[in-house]
């Protein structure tokens, strides 16, 4: 039996900010803000199953995903395979830390990454959404609950 607890927006923001600061450099801070007109270039999600069941997703424009890849890999040129890897690792870290805030024990899936928007089960409800800007581009991080929990 899972518990329909949801993370607070401030907690999600702290998690995302920690990931950004640790791996993408503090010179270009992540700024929470109004939703942007995001053309989703890349997205990724992880699911959590167990005492808490949910999905965490990240959506970002292609140019931002490529910059994330350049910074994480320390390269100038990027290939789609590497961009997918970097975006997947981002959502893995964000999802793993969201999982740690929720009731356990639970299990984190491997990331699913897509060029465009990742598929999402219709049996989920968005319960927390962080809109933020980095280097002048918008990104979105969402937490969804599984099993049609309503609040």
């Amino acid at each position: 039996m899972s518990t329909a607890v949801e993370p607070a927006l401030t907690d999600l923001q702290t998690v995302v900010d920690d990931v950004w600061t640790s791996f993408l450099g503090g010179d270009e801070p992540l700024i929470p803000g109004a939703p942007g007109d995001t053309e989703v270039g890349w997205s990724a999600s992880v699911t959590v199953t167990g005492a808490w069941e949910g999905m965490i997703s990240v959506e970002l424009p292609a140019a931002m995903a490529e910059e994330v890849c350049r910074r994480m890999l320390g390269v100038e040129e990027t290939q789609d395979e590497d961009v997918a890897d970097a975006v997947g690792e981002l959502v893995n870290m964000i999802g793993g830390n969201v999982k740690s805030l929720m009731p356990g024990p639970s299990v984190l899936s491997l990331p699913v990454v897509a060029a465009g928007r990742v598929a999402r089960s219709s049996d989920t409800t968005e319960v927390c959404r962080l809109d933020a800007w980095w280097a002048g581009s918008p990104l979105v991080v969402c937490v969804h609950l599984h099993g049609g929990h309503q609040h």
């Binding site: 870290m93 999802g95 793993g96 830390n97 999982k99 740690s100 356990g104 984190l108």
Partner: peptide
């Protein structure tokens, strides 16, 4: 690793890991 549940950390250390760092680091 991103695995930061206390139970998982204890399991890994009991299995023989010496140290544990949680991502992001």
């Amino acid at each position: 690793t991103t695995e930061s549940e206390h139970g998982q950390i204890v399991r890994a250390l009991a299995a023989g890991a010496h140290e544990y760092v949680i991502k992001p680091f």
